[in-house]
Nucleic acid binder design. Structure first.
Lengths: 148, 148
DNA sequence: TATTGTTATACTCTATAACTATA
DNA sequence: TATAGTTATAGAGTATAACAATA
């Protein structure tokens, strides 16, 4: 592998970009439909998911969503106005504001995830057990690779 | 497998939605960076890619991009103003307008794809040949599955 | 000085409804 | 009647620059 992995060109050309765009558009469509079924935009739904298992600061959300911090302010404004999140001051650093889900927000987030999960489940029924089993680990590995 | 593939529940729960959102955000960030390096928005870059190997009508682009047809009008306006595409009437149906890439548009699209490809290549060097080989077919299979 | 969140601004993306022209 | 593309409109996402509060 020392002189075998490197010479082999990594996935390049060969329509990889086009394939990735196709997949990206399909996932985007799935997220959009699931979000709208809950009265959310995709960005709002994704923010809620990131706030589900932690209480992220605005800067952390900006990094997770790969957008400018100024966008998070407006995004949070709209979610707060609907009673789905609250802004809570960080006890250790008074510059920080942390996003907490309300009970309504947590319920809506769970509903969104359920729609996505069942939507996926409905489409992958044609796959073999092996194919499906290989999907999640590969998703996670690809995410880790891209994030690094 | 005839009575083994069906009873096994398809990928559901288990943080699948969160994993998918994570991957989605990373690919979005990669596309955004590549697009901006060419002076394009991600939506503009994706439209150009879809117009690279065909001359899609506005309705076809709306379906490929999963957005309303009215969005394609404005998207095409901005690309046409920059001389990257032209609107050409369909010879068989005078209601249809087809998007053609100009020489500049084709060059910019190729440059965008090159940035995406090399950006991906730079990140997947740590993968084994087997892992990389399994990625593209799975991407394509997943796209086909989601599109159906 | 540096960092966090905000505001102001401008542009882009998005969907809905109503319109024109073609079929 | 139905379809393709456009326009008008309103709301949402996006980045840049400048700002106040805090570290």
């Amino acid at each position: 592998m020392a002189h075998d992995a490197q010479p082999t060109p990594p996935p390049e050309g060969d329509g990889l970009t086009d394939s990735l765009i196709g997949l990206f558009r399909e996932i985007d469509a799935l997220f959009s439909a699931a979000s709208r079924s809950q009265g959310l935009t995709p960005q709002q739904a994704q923010l809620l998911c990131f706030a589900q298992h932690m209480q992220p600061s605005f800067g952390e959300l900006a990094r997770l969503l790969h957008c400018d911090k100024t966008n998070v302010t407006g995004l949070a404004d709209r979610l707060e106005r609907r009673g789905l999140i609250t802004r809570e001051p960080d006890p250790h650093d008074r510059r920080l504001s942390r996003v907490h889900l309300t009970a309504d927000g947590a319920a809506l987030t769970a509903a969104f995830q359920q729609v996505v999960d069942s939507s996926l489940a409905g489409r992958f029924t044609g796959w073999t057990a092996e194919q499906r089993a290989s999907l999640l680990p590969l998703l996670r590995a690809a995410t880790t690779t891209l994030r690094g």
